[in-house]
Amino acid sequence: MLVAIIAGGVLVSYFWLPFAPDDTSGGRLMPPGGDHLLGTDKLGRDLLTQLLIGGRIALATALGAVAVGGILGVSFGLLAGFATRWLDDAAAVVLDILIAFPTLLLAMLIVAGTGASLGTAILAIGLAMAAIVARLTRVLVKQVLGRDYITAARIAGISWPRIVASHVLPNIAPVVLVNLALQAGLAVLAEASLSYLGLGTPPPNASWGRMLYEAQATVLTAPAAALAPGLALVALVIGMNLTADGLRDLADPRRANR
């Protein structure tokens, strides 16, 4: 629900914004009310406008990072799940190292190479997510492969690709999807932190993280400038977590009420 409201707001922002993003006519640090529903920031830009544009970036990050993390993570996790002996141990160690590698450091390295942009932020967050998803997928795949129905399918001579498509993927999907939805929330937070640190979306594009950074100095005199992006972040992340719960109920026939 929360996600839908925010996504709706973001969609609207492509057709209509209360003010032009770079319109500074409204006076600085105006309190909420009047022409500017949420007030203005220290450069006199309309906060609601900024918030909506920031929402685009938040959702783009969530979708992009989940796409990168999901595709890379599930593919690698599947391969690792099938590995045996030393190859299996090696895969586990590599994944653990990747997970231990801080997302921020990874982002800084990528930024150092290519310059800060939304793309690098998504890439960095997606790669970090891929490692976590891969580890989860690997464990789940191993679990499923040990089940008797896999042995039964192999005895019947059903090919590996078919077994993966019909037994393995459906059985790991509920858990992986729920995890991806949770990760989407974390990705939004990670993008906010990166932008807050100046490693994410470069100005003049508004990102919730950078809005927070810019509002920091004036938080006591104009709390709306900090509260608005802060609350938006919380709402989106909670919304994504709730979506994760909903997905879990949907994906599992044992819980589905027919």
Binding site: R147, D148, Y149, T151, A152, I155, P170, N171, P253
Partner: peptide, 13 residues
């Protein structure tokens, strides 16, 4: 063909 001990894990849930 095999029939397994535990009918719960022998069938894909």
């Amino acid at each position: 063909a095999i029939v397994f001990q535990e009918p719960l894990t022998a069938l894909d849930p």
